[in-house]
Amino acid sequence: MVLPATAVAVPNLLSQPDTCKSGYVWREATGPGDHVCVTPGVRAQAKDDNAHAAARRVSPSDPTCISGYVWREATANDLVCVTPGTRTQTKDDNAHAASRVQGS
Rank of each mutant, 00 (worst) to 15 (best):
Y24R: 06
R27Q: 05
H52L: 10
Q102C: 15
D78N: 08
S99Y: 13
V70M: 08
P40G: 00
Q102L: 08
P32R: 14
I66K: 15
C65R: 06
R87D: 05
Q16W: 05
G23I: 02
G31C: 03
A53K: 09
G31T: 06
G85S: 13
S59H: 03
R27P: 01
T19L: 02
L3C: 12
M1C: 12
K91P: 04
T86I: 09
V10K: 13
K21W: 03
V2R: 13
V38P: 08
D78H: 04
V101I: 15
R43T: 01
D78I: 03
V80E: 01
P84A: 09
C65T: 14
T6N: 11
A51D: 12
Y24K: 09
N77M: 14
A54S: 14
S104Q: 07
R57C: 01
D93R: 01
C37Q: 12
A95S: 15
V38R: 08
D92V: 07
S99I: 04
H52W: 04
Q102Y: 02
W71F: 13
L13S: 10
L14Y: 02
C81I: 10
L14Q: 15
G33Y: 06
S15M: 09
T30D: 09
S61Y: 05
A76I: 00
V2S: 12
K47G: 11
V2M: 11
G33R: 13
P4D: 11
W26H: 14
T39W: 04
A98I: 10
A95K: 09
T90C: 01
N94R: 11
C81N: 11
T64G: 15
K47P: 04
A53V: 08
V10E: 06
L3P: 03
V80Q: 12
S15H: 04
C37M: 06
E28N: 14
V8A: 12
V25R: 01
V8I: 11
